[in-house]
Write a protein that binds this DNA or RNA. Sequence first.
DNA 1: CTACATTTGCAACATTGTTGCAATTGCAAT
DNA 2: ATTGCAATTGCAACAATGTTGCAAATGTAG
Lengths: 135, 135
Amino acid sequence: MEASEILRNHKLKKTSPRVAIIEALQSSPLPMGEDEISSMMGSHYDRTTFYRSALTLEEAGILHRIVIDKLLVKYALNEGRHNNAVRSNHAHFFCNHCQKLICLENIHPGPYRLPEGFQSQASEVIIKGLCSKCN
Amino acid sequence: MEASEILRNHKLKKTSPRVAIIEALQSSPLPMGEDEISSMMGSHYDRTTFYRSALTLEEAGILHRIVIDKLLVKYALNEGRHNNAVRSNHAHFFCNHCQKLICLENIHPGPYRLPEGFQSQASEVIIKGLCSKCN
DNA sequence: CTACATTTGCAACATTGTTGCAATTGCAAT
DNA sequence: ATTGCAATTGCAACAATGTTGCAAATGTAG
């Protein structure tokens, strides 16, 4: 789906940084860090704008932010292409050797049985190890 | 168990920062951030030393470092008291309101069925939401 | 007690992210 | 198409967490 259509579907203004972020992520098979997105977006790139745009897109459910470790954050698009189907929660695998982050679409963690009175709003599963290429 | 005994068991030198970190964490029922540990350790506190000591203790399996989100990291002791029993993997709950991190000792995620050739070395489950007090 | 490897403390720097504010831009209404 | 105005951007400054290099201090084995 085109970036402008995604933005329109979520009633967000079509601005160049938003379009650029979406297109950068669409062009990559794997989640990317800010550094990678930045280099794809070229010179006209402001870090504050990136963070604010990414936050807006995250709040709209368009993208997903995964914190692997301090100083290591990756972004991925939620491929909620099929109408507004909320994408099912899935685990992430981080390769300690090649530093790639891979979405494990077929691992659906939870639901978790929380203690009385606790309410879950989001959850994240990160499995670290060696991927098939580095093993 | 006393800090000095823990260090001896792991063949680590007994140094004052290490002892202070262990005692700070022992005195708290919840994992703490660097800021909290720092204020418990008083003035003679160097951030570099803290990070290096925490890393040493983590590598020895004495403590556990949980990244909740960028700019929000908590540390907890692995209570591997009973000999060298590796503490079973457990999930963490982070309250979006009061910012407390709670170990959910009775939620044991995994094992996960990884794709062919992948090898798991560690995993982390963070559930975010509202705790019973803030709900 | 001594030797020596380990650890600490300091300074400088790196990465990721946030806040305030003025200037610009997208878009809806005319 | 033009205009008005809220939303967004870009810049500067700052915040939190963490790393690296290196000289000085410290723990401990012998």
